[in-house]
């Protein structure tokens, strides 16, 4: 599962050693060193992805990876173009194309339609509950709406943010990971919401193009805190009186 997720995130021309190092970091450092399934504090895939991105930024360049091809859509990552040119760049992409996965991205992280089908299957099989994906998408939509309203020429629209890059992958596969997500309902929704906000903020203000990997790391470390918002059990407590 983790390996497949990393595979989706990697650029299509990733050399074998990049995959090897990624998997090593993911399984040995991210997962086993922290105690294995159920015990790791942050999502190992996100951890490995982050390590690779900061170590070999040039190797993690989705656009460069596909430079030799000429497909029938704009040959540059949507988020990257929007970042450099402002939201007017959106016009060079059709939303339908992006929805069907016709956009420059990693090996599979932007196949919006297929990821959505997979995510809905997880929901239907009750492997994940709706709180995190819905919260995440709501967070993305609300934040980008607000930013777009504030400065329409600089910040991308909500529908663009939802379809570009790895938003859907994060909403259904990365953030709701059992081990690194909260267990109570309200915290689950909150963690999704916060994740969505962080994602749009990173995309809009930092120098990374697609902030999904860092978003996942950041929201994972908030979770123990969020999970303190738990419903109260019914117990009789002694009334403590101040002297």
């Amino acid at each position: 599962m983790l390996g497949a997720l990393l595979g989706l995130l990697l650029p299509v021309n990733a050399p074998w050693w990049l995959i090897l190092v990624g998997c090593f970091i993911m399984i040995v450092v991210g997962k086993k060193l922290f105690g294995g399934l159920g015990a790791y504090p942050v999502h190992p895939t996100a951890l490995a992805g982050a390590m690779l991105i900061v170590s070999w930024p040039s190797r993690f360049d989705y656009t460069a990876a596909l430079a030799g091809f000429n497909l029938d859509f704009k040959m540059i990552e949507p988020i990257r173009l929007v970042k450099t040119l402002g939201s007017t760049a959106e016009e060079s992409y059709s939303l339908m194309d992006m929805f069907l996965g016709h956009q420059i991205a990693g090996a599979g992280n932007a196949m919006v339609l297929y990821l959505l089908i997979g995510g809905l299957f997880l929901l239907a099989a009750r492997q994940i509950s709706w709180h995190i994906p819905v919260g995440f998408l709501a967070g993305v939509a609300l934040t980008s709406l607000a930013l777009h309203a504030y400065n329409p020429s600089l910040f991308a629209t909500a529908q663009f943010q939802l379809l570009a890059g790895s938003t859907i992958l994060a909403a259904f596969f990365l953030v709701p990971d059992h081990t690194t997500s909260p267990v109570n309902l309200l915290p689950m929704f909150l963690s999704g919401l916060i994740g969505g906000m962080i994602l749009v903020l990173i995309r809009s203000f930092s120098h990374h193009y697609d902030g999904v990997i860092f978003t996942v790391l950041l929201v994972n470390i908030c979770n123990p805190l969020l999970d303190r918002i738990a419903p109260k059990p019914i117990v009789k407590r002694e009334v403590v009186q101040d002297a």
Partner: peptide, 19 residues
């Protein structure tokens, strides 16, 4: 080992943090 899925906690009839 527990995978921290939280099903136990959400189903608990006494609102406990079972996991």
């Amino acid at each position: 080992t527990c995978i921290n899925c939280g099903r136990c906690t959400r189903v608990c009839t006494a609102n406990l943090q079972v996991h």
